[in-house]
């Protein structure tokens, strides 16, 4: 339990840094922040009004304290485009992004880890070279380009994928009653399998496009750490003990190879959360990424900052999760803490 607290405390400096950066991005940069917050259609009077309302005429430290105070109340300001509180907007759209990211991660892990393991058991074989080649090629494809290519092939040419109109074709289906906000989960809870299948069908292409870029780092590190584990002394001991091949591969080699794999997951999450923005744009996905793009283009300042902050907090929490996963895998990490 002590190590859990230690890890939790360890995230505080990161969170603090994140808050300072988002504050600086919105309050201490060239130009007139008040003009930013007032939006492109503002005149001198409305800018002045915004300035006093947001306290932008105060010195920076005071503004910072006020910013932190607002954050503590969950107040990220109001969006100019939707007219709602940014917090409300983001929370409304967050489940869509999380659902997409989750499926993308599942796709990437489910494909990359077996590939890496397979390649490591047959180093220098045809399988190994094919794996390495396909993985490097996948790493060169911009996510948004992959997204468009998949739409072109599977929707336009082959017509086996549904129209890329977001999470659900609302002309044909109605969204499941809101419980978690994740459509596939909510549809299952409601017992509506037709809607569940429709939601899943909408998810397939975006999740693959998003996951493809995460494939390369996971497969590479799996292969490398598997090779190392298979060549290790303890694998040799297991073989000398006459243990069955499957046991050696899974319990001895793979479990040891998992720690380096969990270490690259942090980088993978950075990719996934960032690329989310691009994929949501391609597929008309109504998540926080698409919201942020609209906000950026409309100079909707509070909305953009809220989005950046939320993504960063999400990322810090995901890294914490990965960290905890590492302690589950490796008892040594647990004892060091």
């Amino acid at each position: 339990m002590a190590f859990l607290w230690k890890r939790l405390l360890g995230t505080i400096p990161s969170l603090l840094g994140v808050i300072v950066v988002t504050f600086l991005l919105s309050h201490a940069l060239p130009g007139d922040p008040a003009a930013y917050f007032a939006g492109p259609a503002a005149n001198a009077a409305s800018i002045a009004e915004v300035r006093t309302k947001l306290g932008l005429d105060q010195p920076l430290p005071v503004q910072f304290l006020r910013y932190v105070g607002d954050l503590a109340h969950g107040d990220l300001g109001n969006s100019l485009t939707t007219g709602q509180a940014v917090t409300t907007d983001l929370l409304q759209r967050l489940p869509a992004s999380l659902e997409l990211t989750f499926y993308a991660l599942v796709f990437a892990v489910a494909l990359a880890i077996p590939m890496g393991v397979w390649a490591a058991t047959k180093p220098d074989s045809l399988v190994d070279h094919l794996c390495r080649a396909s993985v490097s090629v996948a790493a060169a494809f911009p996510t948004f380009f992959v997204g468009l290519l998949l739409v072109y092939i599977f929707y336009f040419l082959l017509d086996i994928a549904p129209e890329p109109v977001g999470r659900l074709n609302e002309i044909l289906y109605t969204a499941p009653p809101h419980v978690t906000g994740a459509y596939t989960l909510d549809a299952l809870i409601a017992g509506d399998f037709a809607t569940f299948r429709a939601c899943l069908a909408q998810l397939v292409l975006p999740a693959i496009s998003l996951g493809l870029f995460a494939l390369a780092p996971i497969a590479r590190i799996t292969r490398a750490s598997m090779l190392q584990a298979l060549g290790s002394d303890f694998t040799r001991t297991a073989r000398a003990g006459g243990l069955p091949r499957g046991k050696i591969l899974i319990t001895y080699a793979f479990r040891n190879a998992l720690l380096p794999v969990s270490n690259v997951l942090g980088m993978v999450f950075s990719f996934l959360l960032g690329s989310n923005v691009l994929i949501e744009q391609v597929y008309g996905w109504q998540g926080i990424g698409a919201y942020a793009v609209t906000a950026v283009l409309a100079s909707d300042y509070a909305a953009v900052q809220g989005f950046v902050l939320m993504m960063a907090v999400l990322y810090v929490l995901l890294n914490l999760l990965v960290d905890l996963l590492g302690t589950v895998i490796d008892p040594r990490v647990r004892f060091e803490a």
Partner: peptide, 8 residues
């Protein structure tokens, strides 16, 4: 030390 599985 290295001949034993470190995480078992």
């Amino acid at each position: 030390r290295t001949a034993l599985n470190p995480i078992r």
